[in-house]
Design a protein around this nucleic acid. Structure first.
Length: 741
RNA sequence: GCGCGAUUAGCUCAGUGGUAGAGCAUUCCCUUGACGUGGGAAGGGCCAGGGGUUCGAAUCCCUUAUCGCGCACCA
C-alpha cells in the first residue's frame, strides 16, 4: 500500500508539484475539461434548481476566463508570512475556478521594487563598509541587478513550495524589456496629454537616502520637542524649528483675526531678526489656525508643505535654508555648515541674547513625517521633479468605484478608497536612485525644464536652445507597478491582453489600499479605458500567535518555510485560511498549524482505510464500482444527500469568497462526519457480503468528493491520494477534475 | 482632530434578527485491526458598558469606554 502512515509531506510535495508542472495545466491554453463535462443534462437542470445563477452560468459557458495577476513579489529577500497568505488565497481561488472549467490564468510576477530593494542593498553595503555614494551609478546598478536576479530565482522556488498553480510560462518581471518600454511610453503619453508636468515643487526629501519620496513613502511619528516663542517685531511667533527661520520675511495671520485687524495684507514693517534687521511683509491667509499659538506665524516655503502652499497662493519668494544633507546654508551666517540638531540650541541662545526669546514650552507633542524605511525626519525641499496631475485621474477612479465597477471585499475598503481618491495630491514620480526604470527625459541645464525623449534624439532645449542632459532619475516603483495588470498581460496588443483583461480579482494586502490599488485603477482607466479588475480582495496582516505585529526587533518573525518544513505546506495553507476573515489581521499560531498537520494525517489515514477496503474485498472490479448497480440503505442515501448539501454550501461560500468558512465546513465534515460516524458505521457493513458493495461505493463517493472540495485548500495531499483512487472517469490530475455539483 | 476596524469560552477567532460556535488549551474515560498526529465525554461565556428599535438583538440604530490601524495636521 502506498498510503503508509503517517502522512509525510516531504515525500509528496515536490513530486506532486512536478506532476502539475509537467501536466501543463497551469497554462490556461491547455484545456483540461471537455465541453461535454459542462453540458447541462436534464438531470443536472433538475438538480440545480434553487442553485445560484452564477453556478448555472459555469456550465452554460464553460470557457469564460478567470484571471488573477499576482501582486509582483519583491525580489529582494525571502518569502515571508504575508507572501504565504497571498499565495494561498490566490491559489485557492485559482484552483477552484480551474476545477469549475474556467479558462483560468494566474499570472506570476516579481518586482524589482525600486527604492525598497535599493534600501535593502544599501544596508548590505553598509555592513561591508561601503557606500553607494562612493560608487558609479552603473556599478551600483549592476550589483543590485545581480543581487535581485539571485533573489528572484530564490523567491520563485519558494512560491512553488507554497503549491502555487500559476502559469510560469507567463512569468513577468517589472524590469523585463517590454515592460520598461511600455512604462516609458506611458510617461510620454501622459506628458502629451498634459497629465504629467515638470514642476518646481515641494517634495519629501530623505537626507539619508538622498532621494525624494511620495506621500505614501513617509510615515508620521510622534515626537516631543521644545516649542519656542520669539518676538518678531510687534508679534510673537511660535516654532518648533528655529533653524529654518533665517529667511522668514513674511508674517501670516488669518484675515478674520480681530487681534490683528489693524495690519493690512501686503503692509511691510522693519524689525530685528536673528542675523540683523529685516523687512517683513504681512500676509493674510485662511490657512492660519487662529486658535493655535498666537495666531501668527512666519513662513518657510522651501521647507514646509503648508508654507509652500501659502507662498504659492500669494506668489511669495522662497529661499533654501537647509541643504540636501541636512546642513545649514550660507544664509544662516555664522551657523552655516552646521547640522540642524547642532545649530538649533545655538540659534535659540543667540535669539535669547538678543532679547527675542519670549518663552519655551518644553512639552510640545507633534507628529513629524519620517522616511518609512530609515525613520530619518523628512526635510521638505523644493526640487524640479516630474509630477502626475492627480485630480481628474482620481475622479475617474472614484466614479468607477461609485458605479460599482469594482467591488471591494471587505466592503468597507470602498469608503477608504473613495476618501483617498477625493484627497489625492499631485504625485511626485522622480526618484534619485539608480535602481529602477529610467525616466526617458532630457533636462535643460539653463531653464531647468524637462522633455520626454523616448528615442533619445533630443539634444537642444526646445524652449531656450541650450544643451540638454539625460534625466538621471528613475520612476517611483508605483509608477510601474501601477500599470502591472496591463503590462503583465502585454498591453496593448497581445492576445493575452485581449483575452484576460480586465482581470477578475486583485488579491492584495489591505495596506496597499492607498499605495497600489488606486494607481492600478487610474492607469487601467487611463490606458485601457477599463477598470483593471472587477473585485478587490484584501487580506489583513499576518501577526504572531499573540496577534502582535511581526518584526525583526521583537524577534517574533515566523518564517513560513520553517512551518512547511515541519508540518507540510497543506497544513500551513489551511491554517492560514480557516478563520481568517478578509481585511482582518490574523494570528499565526504554530500550534494551530500543528492541528492542521494532524488533519492532513487524518485525511491520509481515512483514505488508506477506504482504499484498503476496496482492495481487499473486491480486487478485480472495484474500478467499476461507481457504474455498477448498488443498493444503498436509506441511511446511506441520507449520507450522500448530506454530502450533496455540503457541496452546495461550500460552492456558494467559495463563490462569495468566504474561504474561511468553506474550509471550516469541509474540515468539520471530513473529520467529524465522515471519519467519526460514516466510516465507523461502515466497518460492520464491509464485513457483510450483502452490504459490502453498496458501502464501498458510498465510501469512495464521499472520499473522492471530499478530496475535490479540499483540493483548493490542501492541494498536495489531496492530489497524492487522488492519484491512487480507482475511479472510472479519472482525470490526469485532481487539479483539473471537475468540481462536484 | 478625522476615518476605519475590533471588543464573544483561559488563548486565537468565527457567527449580521429566532434557545451561543470552532480550533487550541483544561478535566475525566478508552492499550478494538485507518489513524494515539486517535476515539468518547465534560467543564467553561449576564456576546465591553448604557440606551433604543423589535414579539424576539451577539447581530440593526444611538452613545460611552478601551485597544489596534490609517490619514491629516498647529507654524
Amino acid at each position: 500500500m502506498k498510503l503508509d502512515g503517517p502522512y509525510d509531506a516531504k515525500q509528496v510535495e515536490d513530486k506532486i508539484y512536478k506532476l502539475w508542472e509537467d501536466s501543463g495545466f497551469f497554462n490556461p491554453d491547455k484545456q483540461a475539461q471537455t465541453n461535454a463535462d459542462f453540458t447541462q443534462t436534464d438531470a443536472d437542470k433538475k438538480r440545480n434548481r434553487g442553485v445560484s445563477v452564477s453556478q448555472r452560468k459555469v456550465r452554460v459557458s464553460p470557457r469564460q476566463s478567470f484571471t488573477i495577476v499576482m501582486p509582483p513579489a519583491n525580489a529582494n529577500g525571502n518569502l515571508h508570512a504575508g507572501h504565504a497568505l497571498v499565495m494561498t488565497l490566490e491559489d485557492i481561488m485559482t484552483r477552484y475556478k480551474r476545477m469549475q472549467g474556467f479558462k483560468t490564468l494566474w499570472l506570476p510576477g516579481l518586482d524589482h521594487a525600486g527604492f525598497e530593494t535599493q534600501v535593502v542593498y544599501e544596508k548590505k553595503l553598509e555592513k561591508e563598509g561601503r557606500s553607494r555614494f562612493n560608487m558609479q551609478p552603473q556599478e551600483l546598478y549592476n550589483e543590485i541587478l545581480e543581487f535581485t536576479l539571485e533573489n528572484k530565482k530564490n523567491i520563485e522556488s519558494q512560491i512553488k513550495k507554497m503549491g502555487a498553480s500559476c502559469d510560469w510560462s507567463r512569468l513577468k518581471f517589472t524590469l523585463d524589456n517590454d515592460i520598461v518600454k511600455e512604462v516609458q511610453r506611458t510617461f510620454k503619453k501622459m506628458y502629451d496629454d498634459g497629465l504629467i508636468y515638470r514642476g518646481q515643487r515641494i517634495v519629501n526629501w530623505c537626507s539619508k537616502h538622498q532621494t525624494s519620496l511620495s506621500d505614501v513613502e513617509t510615515e508620521s511619528k510622534e515626537k516631543k520637542d521644545a516649542f519656542y516663542y520669539f518676538k518678531y517685531g510687534p508679534f510673537t511667533i511660535g516654532t518648533a524649528r528655529p533653524e529654518t527661520k533665517f529667511g522668514d520675511k513674511y508674517v501670516v495671520m488669518h484675515p478674520d483675526d480681530k487681534r490683528y485687524a489693524n495690519y493690512k495684507h501686503g503692509q511691510t514693517l522693519p524689525l530685528e531678526w536673528i542675523n540683523g534687521p529685516i523687512t517683513a511683509t504681512i500676509i493674510k491667509d485662511k490657512a492660519i489656525d487662529m486658535e493655535f499659538g498666537t495666531g501668527v506665524m512666519t513662513i518657510t516655503p522651501w521647507h514646509s508643505d503648508v508654507d509652500f502652499e501659502i507662498a504659492e497662493r500669494h506668489q511669495l519668494d522662497s529661499q533654501q535654508i537647509i541643504d540636501m544633507r541636512g546642513k545649514l546654508l550660507p544664509i544662516a551666517g555664522e551657523f552655516a555648515g552646521m547640522k540642524i540638531t547642532e545649530a538649533r540650541p545655538k540659534i535659540v541662545e543667540k535669539l535669547k541674547a538678543k532679547g527675542l526669546l519670549e518663552k519655551i514650552d518644553e512639552n510640545y507633542v507633534h507628529n513629524v513625517p519620517v522616511c518609512y524605511k530609515c525613520e530619518t525626519a523628512i526635510e521638505p525641499q523644493i526640487l524640479p521633479q516630474w509630477f502626475v496631475k492627480m485630480k481628474d485621474l482620481a475622479k475617474k477612479a472614484a466614479d468607477a468605484v461609485k458605479a460599482k465597477k469594482i467591488i471591494f471585499i471587505p466592503d468597507n475598503y470602498r469608503k477608504i478608497f473613495l476618501y483617498w481618491m477625493e484627497n489625492s495630491i499631485d504625485w511626485n514620480i522622480s526618484r534619485q536612485i539608480v535602481w529602477g526604470i529610467p525616466i526617458p527625459a532630457k533636462i535643460c541645464d539653463t531653464c531647468n525644464d524637462g522633455f520626454p525623449d523616448l528615442e533619445n534624439t533630443l539634444t537642444t532645449c526646445p524652449k531656450c536652445q541650450s544643451t540638454l542632459r539625460g534625466d538621471p532619475d528613475t520612476f517611483d516603483t508605483w509608477f510601474s507597478s501601477g500599470q502591472w495588470p496591463l503590462v503583465a498581460l502585454g498591453y496593448p496588443n497581445s492576445k493575452d491582453f485581449k483575452t484576460f483583461y480586465p482581470t477578475t480579482v486583485m488579491e492584495s494586502g489591505s495596506d496597499l489600499i492607498f499605495k497600489w490599488i488606486p494607481r492600478m485603477v487610474i492607469f487601467g482607466l487611463y490606458l485601457a479605458k477599463k477598470v483593471p479588475f472587477g473585485t478587490v480582495y484584501l487580506h489583513g496582516l499576518v501577526n504572531d500567535a499573540k496577534g502582535q505585529k511581526m518584526s525583526k526587533s521583537k524577534g517574533n518573525v515566523i518564517n513560513p518555510l520553517n512551518i512547511t518544513e515541519k508540518y507540510g505546506t497543506d497544513a500551513l495553507r489551511i491554517g492560514l485560511v480557516m478563520g481568517n476573515t478578509p481585511g482582518q489581521s490574523l494570528a499565526l499560531d504554530e500550534n494551530k498549524i500543528k492541528g492542521h498537520r494532524n488533519f492532513a494525517n487524518k485525511i491520509w489515514n481515512a483514505s488508506r482505510f477506504v482504499l484498503t477496503n476496496l482492495a481487499r474485498i473486491d480486487a478485480d472490479n472495484y474500478a467499476d464500482l461507481r457504474g455498477s448497480k448498488v443498493v444503498l440503505s436509506a441511511h446511506q442515501k441520507q449520507h450522500l444527500k448530506e454530502l450533496k448539501a455540503l457541496v452546495g454550501e461550500v460552492t456558494k461560500l467559495m463563490d462569495n469568497y468566504k474561504f474561511y468558512i468553506a474550509g471550516e465546513k469541509i474540515y468539520h465534515y471530513f473529520w467529524h462526519t465522515f471519519c467519526d460516524k460514516i466510516i465507523e458505521e461502515a466497518k460492520p457493513l464491509l464485513a457483510d457480503s450483502k452490504t459490502r458493495q453498496a458501502t464501498q461505493y458510498m465510501l469512495l463517493e464521499i472520499l473522492s468528493t471530499s478530496l475535490k472540495l479540499l483540493h483548493p485548500f490542501m492541494p498536495f495531499i489531496t492530489e497524492e491520494i487522488y492519484q491512487q483512487l480507482p475511479l472510472k472517469d479519472k482525470k490526469e490530475c485532481l487539479m483539473v477534475a471537475k468540481w462536484p455539483n
